[in-house]
């Protein structure tokens, strides 16, 4: 269908045309909606947009874990969001319970850094363990099996969260200062700045790891063709473990920042955030790292605008908006913004 390159003649496929037209209409409606809101109150619009981007940075970090794992073993790791959830709990545990920090200050910042390292290591290690125990045995099994297993792992992680955190939400004091910076009528939280101050170096580090190191090259080779990679002497098992470790570590970092910025932990947090992050990964083109970041920021932005704008549907529809985007994407552009199509071979 879409996979074949070129066409015999410049004929117009009516189905294609319908898709294009309806896609354009949807795009137009979105642009009109944004325009109307912007004109209503530009300052608020930008404030809300930056707020959205802040969440988007977290989605991007989680989305990277989905996209890397999908890229390398074509598995939708349903448990990834729950890994993030355990990251939030580990962070709260380290900062508040172990180190006893609950307010900004030098000790608080030090605790933040310690928690970042611990949470990343914890989630990375856990992710590697899950792969070793569950997914590795199913690598050659029919697709249904690892997918169902991932759903099972998600449930087990939620159970751990439930025992750890209780069935309700818990509130935590943050070590990040509360203040705001005003630029004209636009407000930017200090939290937002901290989130970007952590996220951007992490992304740079990841880029370096993937493009410049031997492990990174092995990762990309394995993602392209596992068997060929094995023939070239790449240790595929270790490379897959490495990928899971990276993805898990990013989820751990996102967990820390969520816990510090939003200030709550709950066992069922991972499910929703995980799905939002996965939608981001699909939006950007699954398997594509830049795509995941772009998708995360976009979804955060859209969600922020929907929740915060005067002409938005409001927060109670937040989830539905994201899933509607997901479903529309599947219809109009399953390969995502930066992905490419592939066809099956006989």
């Amino acid at each position: 269908m879409t996979g074949a390159p070129g066409r015999s003649a410049p004929t117009i496929d009516p189905k294609d045309l319908t898709l294009k037209i309806s896609g354009a209409i949807i795009g137009l409606v979105i642009v009109l909606w944004l325009g109307k809101n912007f004109l209503y109150d530009p300052g608020q619009f930008l404030t809300v947009a930056i707020q959205g981007l802040k969440n988007g940075a977290l989605y991007a970090l989680i989305a990277l874990g989905y996209t890397m794992v999908y890229g390398i073993i074509q598995l939708i790791n349903f448990a990834h969001g729950d890994l993030f959830m355990l990251g939030t709990m580990m962070s709260a545990f380290v900062i508040t319970t172990v180190l006893g920090q609950s307010s900004p200050g030098p000790a608080g910042y030090a605790a933040f850094v310690v928690a970042l390292v611990v949470s990343m290591a914890f989630c990375g290690g856990l992710n590697v363990g899950i792969e070793r125990f569950a997914y590795r045995r199913l690598r050659r099994a029919p697709k249904l099996a690892p997918l169902i297993t991932a759903v099972g792992v998600s449930f087990v992680l939620q159970f751990i969260g439930l025992r750890w955190n209780g069935s309700g939400q818990k509130q935590w004091q943050s070590v990040i200062p509360d203040g705001q910076i005003n630029i004209g009528s636009v407000e930017i939280d200090v939290q937002t700045i901290i989130i970007f101050a952590v996220t951007i170096p992490l992304l740079l580090l990841l880029t370096w790891l993937v493009t410049r190191t031997k492990q990174g090259r092995a990762m990309r080779a394995t993602a392209q063709d596992q068997d060929a990679a094995r023939l070239m002497g790449i240790n595929v098992d270790r490379t897959i473990s490495f990928t899971f470790a990276l993805g898990g570590a990013l989820a751990g970092a996102a967990g820390l920042m969520y816990q510090q910025v939003v200030g709550t932990t709950a066992y069922n947090l991972g499910f929703q955030l995980g799905l939002i992050a996965f939608t981001s990964a699909v939006l950007g083109g699954i398997g594509n790292l830049t795509g995941a970041v772009l998708g995360g920021l976009l979804i955060g932005l859209i969600q922020g605008l929907n929740d915060g704008l005067v002409y938005g549907l409001g927060q109670q529809w937040s989830q539905s908006v994201v899933f509607t985007i997901l479903i529309l994407l599947m219809v109009f552009k399953p390969a995502g913004l930066l992905g490419k199509n592939v066809t099956e071979k006989v």
Partner: peptide, 25 residues
């Protein structure tokens, strides 16, 4: 109709989204 032409794991995801939207509605 729109999702079944995709790969099967995408179907899992879209149905999951659908299962979330409907109760929220």
């Amino acid at each position: 109709a729109p999702t079944l032409r995709l790969k099967s794991d995408y179907l899992a995801l879209v149905t999951l989204g659908f299962g979330e939207i409907i109760p929220q509605v």
